[in-house]
Simulated assay, not measured.
Amino acid sequence: MSSTPPRPRALFAMGRRHRDALFPSAAVDRLTRLVDIDPHVVAEDFAPVPHLAAVEILITSWGCPPLDDAVLTRMPALKAVVHAAGSVKHHVTDACWDRGLLVSTAAAANAVPVAEYTVAAILFANKRVLEIGGLYREHRNALDWTARFPGFGNYRRTIGLVGASLVGRRVLELLRPHDFDILLADPHLDPEAARSMGVRLVELDELLAASDVVSLHAPALPETYHLLDARRLSLLRDGATLVNTGRGSLIDTESLTAEALSGRIHAVLDVTEPEVLPATSPLYSLPNVLLTPHIAGSLGGELLRITSSALDEVERYCSGREFAYPVTRAALTTSA
């Protein structure tokens, strides 16, 4: 007589408010059919959590404490970390890789709304929607927009993507139906791979000088800190728009502020350095700058896409299959 194998023991490790947002009752019901978990226990700090020794799967998200040697010593049965968010750099340590833990991420799911925001920003930038909307609000009558913005519009504009990340690749897919010329700069990509993606690989300086809109999708690494400094920002053509949904540290904020104050370029910034900018920053009020408070990523109902991805990964693990979205130690050296 066969018996049903025991379900693996799992634990939520994240900020409680994130657990509540990511795992409504329907998601918890699906999860409890897959694993043995107390949905009311959420580890924001591992120190007070009892019975860690039996935990086989950690379901993590924003606010998960670091999984260092001391924590892993208390979890000898731990085999997998399923991250219901994007980057795992904040909690997956070298000790996890040394243990040989399996790690999964929902970064691909989180990339979707970021890419959607980016494409909307690109289309609005070329159409000068923000500037025209502001002028229309002030004057309350139609002006000669073609005379005011000669050549505006999206046809045959050149879009430069910096970084072939998950978001960068998703942006590329969403841009395909439009009549754009697309350039890509990424030091970790070879020309053949770029051609297979339908884009032309160029050096960053060439991309900056040739693009009507530049969108940043590079990771925050030591070599990408202030990737766009004063010299590179000066390469942007007059009237170009810079979109940053990546990391604030990619841009030298002081140099960008100077360029924006001159009125020479436009910017759409969902991330900044620092985040939040000082209240005195001119970037808040400049008509050629749109600041949003880090909203491009998954929020509201979009969080359920992340939940679905994480639950799919838990199901794959429980059925003995490989993760669809695994993370490796090597991959983290060139990712966000």
Rank of each mutant, 00 (worst) to 15 (best):
S3Q: 01
T4G: 06
R7E: 14
F12V: 02
A13W: 06
R16L: 14
H18P: 00
D20H: 08
L22Y: 04
F23W: 10
P24L: 11
S25P: 03
A27S: 15
R30P: 07
R30Y: 12
L31T: 12
D36W: 08
I37V: 11
V41C: 13
V41T: 03
A43Q: 09
D45V: 02
D45H: 04
V49L: 01
P50N: 08
V55S: 05
I57H: 00
L58H: 04
T60I: 06
P65Q: 08
A70C: 01
R74H: 05
R74F: 01
R74W: 09
M75G: 00
H91L: 08
V92M: 02
T93E: 11
D94H: 05
D94T: 00
A95G: 13
W97Q: 06
W97T: 02
D98L: 03
V103M: 07
V103N: 03
A106M: 10
N110P: 07
V112E: 09
F124R: 14
K127T: 11
R128I: 09
L130H: 09
R140L: 05
R140Q: 15
N141H: 15
A142H: 15
L143P: 09
T146H: 05
A147I: 04
R148T: 10
G153D: 15
N154G: 13
N154A: 10
R156Q: 05
R156D: 06
R157M: 04
T158E: 09
V162F: 01
A164D: 00
S165L: 04
S165T: 07
L166I: 08
R170D: 03
V171A: 06
L172F: 10
R176W: 09
F180D: 05
D181P: 02
I182V: 15
L183C: 03
L184S: 04
P187N: 14
H188E: 00
L189E: 02
L189Y: 07
R200W: 02
E206L: 14
A210R: 11
A210P: 03
S211M: 05
H217V: 00
A218M: 00
P219W: 08
P219N: 06
Y225V: 05
L227K: 00
L228Y: 03
D229R: 04
A230W: 13
S234V: 08
L236F: 02
A240N: 12
V243Y: 01
T245E: 00
T245L: 01
A258Y: 04
E259Q: 15
S262V: 07
I265N: 02
I265C: 01
H266F: 11
L269D: 07
E273Y: 00
T280F: 13
T280R: 11
P282D: 10
P282F: 14
S285A: 10
P287D: 10
P293D: 10
H294W: 01
G297H: 10
G297M: 03
L299S: 13
L299C: 11
L299A: 14
G300K: 08
L304P: 00
S308N: 13
S308E: 15
A310P: 08
L311P: 13
D312E: 12
E313L: 12
V314K: 12
R316L: 12
S319W: 08
S319D: 15
P326A: 09
P326F: 15
R329V: 05
A330V: 13
L332T: 14
